[in-house]
Design a binder for these strands. Structure first.
Length: 505
RNA sequence: GCGUCCAUAGCUCAGCUGGUAGAGCACUCCCCUUUUAAGGGAUAGGUCCUGCGUUCGAAUCGCAGUGGACGCACCA
């Protein structure tokens, strides 16, 4: 750097006000002091030879008070200093190790540098491995280096950073301070990788379809609207990739395709909802929804085993058994068992309405048989579906992209997997009949005109594609963020997204 | 959108029925070279979220606003 000037502290997320400003100015003065020692506070490179966790494991058996001649070069962030810099807690991405800075081992220059170290600085240290008489594995340093001078104070060392707003808004600070956050977000990456590997191993082709769409189809949700300047065209951020993936099945790009990427829905934010979230969708030609059930079970139990090493997990104190096989229950049976209503015996919309009223629910007069069945399920059954279960055979009227049930015209071949009461997957035998698909879309248009602004739009080109012929196809969607919440025991979706959507400050 | 709760030093938090604010950690200086939430001593650090009101007097009480957390609703 040219000259360390004492620029006034501008608006700063974490550290503002007089106290933080003074700390920052003091540290900038230390930059000048470093310059006088001909030390670059922001150097280019450091040859690191070992990770802290690796060293902790390698020297696990080294007794207290023992010293080796093994020389290592470690690097990381200073998290604590004791005895005037004699002991430094150095944290790298793998763990911590103590750096021992004794004046017998460090020359005058290093001792001057040591005085300019602050908690939060990134430093490197060279030295031999020893374990102190108190049992702490340490690098007895013969050389120390500044790798990046920190200008801002870290949160308090014992309580750490607990303020949820700061943790989400300044995730970098949360990551520095909280091992749990590091672990959760690393596990997220491992889970996503394991899912991807699972599908690739099964012969699925990973594809990418448009996130900017002129018709936001494939789900019922309000989209984000944007504008393409050169085309002077209103466009939507996708709410689902479904209709494009099925176009690829029509085209025969592969009999098995999947996409694992972001969807955007312009809806409310809650512990289970973020406006942008990660969705897996997979389609397999010549398969039906029974095959998709096998796939969901095998995928999730395999990923849990691979990443967590177990299929018995605990979410917020609730034990969940992910081992196969998972229970399968039709929606009508589930409602019969848990709510005491037999929709097989209910024929008219009016009967369904009265039946729901009789058990204390308040259906709307305009709803039909299927909508009321689903409503009763959601109100009375869903919260009880704690252990993994596939709820099978949804009513036709709420599922415009699923094929009619082969044995019951009121239903479609659709299931949702429930774990902890949450919808974890949603899958169908995909509707391949173009004439039926057009009729379903037209019914959605009527619903849209009746005020349902989340009803599907009619995608003419998609129906056109179906008219060329789509093979029988099983399709599957899994909300990846919620699955990660379950697998990492995270209470909020914001805990599993590195930078969750926040109102700007 | 509705309800409940919250907002005080960089961080974690006290602050009682109204009398212009405290602690620990961090920072600065001094002591201390085998500590690990190190220790001892001395400083410094505040628009008590914002505005209006009540009052002789507001961090404290009231109203409004802003931001946040949680719950409900919405999200097939």
């Amino acid at each position: 750097m040219e000259e360390a000037t004492q620029t006034p502290l501008k608006t700063n997320e974490h550290a503002e006000g007089q106290s933080a400003s003074r700390i920052r100015e003091t540290r900038i003065q230390k930059l000048n002091a470093l310059k006088e020692l001909n030390i670059e506070p922001y150097p280019y490179k450091f040859e690191k030879t070992a990770d802290n966790q690796t060293l902790q494991e390698r020297y696990q058996e080294l007794p207290a008070g023992e010293e080796t001649t093994d020389v290592v070069r470690v690097a990381g962030r200073i998290m604590a200093m004791r005895n005037n810099g004699l002991f430094i807690d150095l944290q790298d991405t793998t763990g911590k190790i103590q750096v021992f800075c004794h004046k017998e081992n460090l020359n005058e220059e290093y001792l001057k540098l040591l005085k300019l170290f602050d908690i939060g600085d990134m430093i490197g240290a060279t030295g031999t491995i020893r374990r102190t008489p108190r049992g702490e594995l340490s690098v007895k340093s013969t050389a120390i280096e500044m790798l990046s001078k920190s200008l801002l104070p870290l949160p308090e060392k014992f309580h750490g950073l607990t303020d949820k707003e700061i943790r989400y808004r300044q995730r970098y600070l949360d990551l520095i301070m909280n091992e749990d956050t590091r672990k959760t977000l690393r596990n997220r990456s491992l889970i996503v990788s394991a899912i991807r590997k699972y599908f690739l191993d099964k012969g699925f082709l990973e594809v990418e379809t448009p996130m900017l769409q002129t018709i936001a189809g494939g789900a019922a949700a309000r989209p984000f609207i944007t504008h393409h300047n050169a085309l002077d065209l209103e466009m939507y951020m996708r709410i689902a990739p479904e209709l494009y993936l099925k176009r690829l099945i029509v085209g025969g790009l592969s009999e098995k395709v999947f996409e694992l990427n972001r969807n955007f829905r312009n809806e409310g934010i809650s512990f289970k909802h973020n406006p942008e979230f990660t969705m897996l969708e997979a389609y397999q030609a010549y398969a039906d929804y029974h095959d998709m059930m096998d796939l969901v079970e095998d995928l999730i139990s395999t990923v849990a085993q691979d990443v967590l090493g177990t299929q018995q997990i605990t979410y917020q104190g609730q034990e969940l058994n992910l081992a196969r096989p998972w229970k399968r229950l039709t929606m009508i049976d589930a409602v019969r068992q848990e709510a005491g209503l037999d929709f097989d015996a209910i024929e008219s919309n009016k009967q369904a309405f009265e039946a729901a009223k009789n058990i204390g629910l308040e259906p709307e007069a305009a709803w039909g048989w299927g909508k009321i069945l689903e409503y009763v399920f959601e109100e009375r059954v869903e919260p009880k579906m704690i252990q993994p279960v596939h709820i099978i055979d949804y009513p036709k009227e709420t599922s415009p992209l699923a094929k009619v049930h082969r044995n019951d015209p009121r239903l479609v071949e659709r299931f949702e997997t429930r774990i902890y009461g949450w919808e974890v997957s949603n899958a169908f035998s995909e509707l391949s009949n173009p004439l039926d698909q057009r009729a379903r879309f037209e019914a959605q248009l009527e619903a849209r005109e009746a005020g349902d602004d989340e009803a599907h739009q009619l995608d003419e080109d998609y129906v056109h594609a179906l008219e060329y012929g789509m093979p029988p196809t099983g399709g599957l969607g899994i909300g990846i963020d919620r699955l990660i919440m379950l697998l990492t025991d995270s209470p909020s979706i914001r805990d599993v997204i590195a930078f969750p959507t926040m109102r700007p400050r």
